[in-house]
């Protein structure tokens, strides 16, 4: 019984913490977004979840950075509001490399908010008109350093996904719950083959049903996420396709169960197919996605995501969410088993 209570506690915790904790401050854009080299330009920086007015302008620092050897610090920083500030940059006449334009990352350091970063925020174009070159800016006069790293309960700010990063706590645990439930279903099927009782068959089908439900939820949360992050709910990503196929296998399992006149025969053949289908899930979910490009994080190689996709605060919500949703899935399956048991008893009485 304790694990049912635990599942409720963990799911409620992951819902509350996942929804209420704010994002770290970030930079949304700069204005202007492009300039020519060898000029002095005043650039406006727009922040997200930031509180620029909380500290004095001389404590704030802002850079446009190409790499560790090429960074420009902003001068004359003026704070306009909590979410916007101005700084002037004296661009050197030469670019860090031989190309005609480079993309610079915007980095902002705030003593109270911490560091925020926007990769590829600013485009610096090589000025071909050498007569127009004024001033003598040089790269890395004030290198990026002494950054304030603030440790608090906030989620990382990521471009493209922004606030939808919270979906990590709902989308990913669905797949974990699905995997554990399908595993339980396969184990019940194997036990049915060794010991053909009605109870083992009920378990196998209830776990598969609940697993299928979690699969559909995972697909729906994934499509919602894809709608915001990739622009379309369904973009024929290899993992979306393989998951859809994996769910088709289990739909076929339920059709197979019901297409026999004798329930005992149907149960046995469905148990056999369940084991076969689970084994073919492994290539579907772990081998095939590695052969094709994917939009998912950790796309080339990893079935899940890499270490840079989760930070320690996210782990504090993510792992409890996985455990909570998995336990909730087993509770749901158990209710289904008990319901089926009662229904079978009613059938016997009639």
């Amino acid at each position: 019984m304790w694990w049912k209570a635990l599942s409720v506690v963990l799911v409620v915790y992951s819902l509350l913490a996942g929804m209420l904790a704010p994002l770290k401050p970030g930079i949304t854009r700069t204005n202007p977004e492009t300039a020519k080299s060898g000029q002095t330009v005043t650039v406006q920086v727009f922040g997200y979840n930031s509180f620029y007015t909380r500290s004095a302008a001389n404590e704030l620092r802002v850079w446009l950075e190409y790499d560790s050897l090429h960074a420009l610090a902003g001068q004359d920083i003026k704070i306009l509001s909590d979410t916007s500030l101005e700084a002037s940059f004296l661009f050197p006449p030469d670019l860090p490399n031989a190309s005609t334009s480079v993309l610079l990352n915007a980095i902002l350091d705030h003593p109270k908010d911490g560091v925020s970063l926007l990769p590829g925020a600013f485009e610096l174009v090589k000025n071909t008109d050498t007569a127009a070159v004024a001033g003598s800016g040089a790269w890395n006069r004030n290198p990026v350093g002494d950054l304030h790293v603030i440790k608090d309960f906030t989620f990382p700010y990521r471009n493209v996904i922004y606030e939808s990063i919270r979906n990590t706590y709902y989308h990913v645990p669905m797949w974990f719950a699905l995997m554990f439930l399908f595993l339980a279903s396969v184990i019940s099927s194997a036990r049915y083959l060794r010991n053909p009782t009605l109870e083992n068959d009920r378990r196998a089908s209830a776990y598969a049903e609940t697993g299928l439900f979690f699969g559909l939820m995972g697909l729906v949360t994934g499509m919602l996420w894809a709608h915001y992050a990739w622009g379309r709910a369904w973009s024929n990503d290899i993992k979306q396709l393989m998951t859809a196929v994996a769910l088709l296998i289990y739909f076929a399992y339920f059709i197979l169960r019901r297409s026999f006149d004798e329930p005992e025969k149907g149960a046995r053949l469905a148990a056999v197919y369940n084991i076969f289908a689970f084994a073919s899930l492994i290539p579907l979910l772990y081998i095939v996605p590695r052969m094709f490009a994917s939009l998912h994080p950790g796309a080339t190689g990893n079935p899940a995501f890499g270490s840079q996709d989760l930070d320690n605060t996210m782990r504090l919500v993510f792992y409890p969410a996985i455990i909570g949703w998995t336990l909730l899935g087993f509770w749901m399956a158990q209710l289904r088993i008990r319901y089926q048991r009662l229904e079978d008893r009613v059938m016997d009485l009639e």
Partner: peptide
């Protein structure tokens, strides 16, 4: 061998095997 035991084996054969064969 599974589908042969069922009533509508041709339909079952297709729906059971296509997802499995896809990888």
């Amino acid at each position: 061998s599974i589908a042969a035991r069922a009533n509508q084996s041709a339909t079952l054969m297709a729906i059971l095997s296509f997802p499995v064969i896809l990888p």
